[in-house]
């Protein structure tokens, strides 16, 4: 699974805001230019980004394998025609290039995921998005991170309990609604307890923000991000 891994690569030392800027610039220009030449340049850049974050190409492709299936099917679907000539090569090529740029965008974002702990992303959100939305989004992401394993084990327990009582013999609707209802009611119980804890600990709109600072390495990378973003409109 694709996730943050502690390491000491170049990307790990960058400020999360810099890495977000690169991703946005890259995605903008990749979306704007699905041409062979542009994609060749962007492929080289993707290689650099992945190397800079210590991302393994093979493991990333495995992690995105279901997404890749759709990307691989698209040119085939696009090329096949119901009558002569049976296969439209121009349409398939256009779709193939379009699919390939999506793959590049996914690979670049994998570099962010591997090199950025959630607390850095949270700090970036709270320091970039102003006011109350930024505060709720930042703390909210930390809470999702905190509760994801808790709720995953809740759902697993519910499924195992159902299996033990021969729940697998029941209809699909019945099973989906039972899992959904038990999952939701447990989630609400947990949320209401969490809410008391947040209140008791003075949850505020204007807390001390998590520390975050640009270093010297960030500036050239930010320039790259701006160049990428500008190239989208050329």
């Amino acid at each position: 699974m694709l996730t943050y891994e502690p390491d000491d690569t170049f990307a790990h030392r960058l400020d999360p805001r810099t890495k977000l800027a690169v991703q946005i610039g890259f995605a903008a220009t990749a979306l704007a230019h699905p041409t062979p030449w542009a994609l060749l340049v962007l492929s080289a850049l993707t290689g650099l980004v992945m190397a800079g974050a210590g991302v393994s190409l093979r493991r990333t492709l495995v992690a995105y394998r279901f997404a890749l299936l759709v990307l691989a099917l698209a040119p085939v679907l696009s090329g096949v025609t119901l009558g002569a000539p049976w296969f439209d090569r121009a349409a398939a090529t256009a779709s193939g290039l379009a699919s390939y740029r999506v793959l590049l965008v996914l690979l670049v974002s994998a570099a962010y995921v591997r090199s950025t702990p959630v607390r850095d992303s949270r700090a970036a959100i709270q320091r970039t998005i102003p006011g109350k939305p930024g505060q709720l989004l930042g703390v909210g992401v930390a809470l999702v991170f905190r509760f994801l394993p808790v709720l995953r084990s809740d759902l697993r327990t519910i499924r195992e309990t159902m299996a033990a009582r021969l729940g697998t013999e029941r209809g699909a609707v019945d099973r989906a609604s039972t899992i959904g209802m038990l999952g939701l009611s447990r989630a609400f119980d947990r949320a209401d307890r969490l809410s008391l804890a947040l209140q008791a600990r003075c949850f505020a709109w204007n807390p001390t923000l998590p520390p975050l600072a640009f270093s010297r390495a960030d500036y050239p990378v930010l320039v790259v991000a701006v160049v990428l973003a500008c190239s989208a409109v050329i």
Binding site: M1, L2, T3, Y4, L20, Q23, I24, A27, L31, A63, Y64, R65, F66, A67, V70, L71, A74, S99, V102, V105, L106, L107, V108, S109, A110, Y112, V113, T116, V118, S121, R122, I125, V141, V144, F145, L148
Partner: peptide
């Protein structure tokens, strides 16, 4: 920002601009 919550345990900003 990297929590594996998208389809099949994927994550990343790329998914939010990608094909799906």
């Amino acid at each position: 920002v990297g929590l594996p919550v998208f389809a099949n345990g994927t994550s990343g900003l790329g998914v939010l601009v990608g094909d799906t």
